[in-house]
Amino acid sequence: MKLLALFATLMTGAILLYGTMDFPAFGDPQSPAATHLATYFTENAVRETHVPNLVTAVLGDYRGYDTMFETVVIYCAGLAVVSVLRKKKPSVPENKS
């Protein structure tokens, strides 16, 4: 069973490494991730929002949906933990009847 798991893990790693042959090199300024939308954010975010920290500007304004539903996700996580774990102690002893 453990040998099967090891085999599956090694196969997945080999496939992923084969997939990275097409990926851009480390630190490439012309990689696809850096050329499409990030260029617009870097050039215009300070002028449009007056926030020098680009991460905060993108987090709060351009990707507001992402951040909002992410807050809802952690709120739901807190709600789930309370509803799974919380137990109230009985305030009156139960052996009266």
């Binding site: 449009e48 929002t49 007056h50 926030v51 905060t56 500007a57 709060g60 304004d61 507001g64 951040t67 909002m68 807050t71 952690i74 709120y75 996580a77 807190g78």
Partner: peptide
């Protein structure tokens, strides 16, 4: 207002993350 709106939502996120 765009700058200030980011500030308001950051405070909201901070409160939620702290208490949770």
């Amino acid at each position: 207002w765009r700058s200030f709106g980011i500030f308001v939502i950051e405070v909201g996120v901070g409160l939620a993350v702290m208490s949770i």
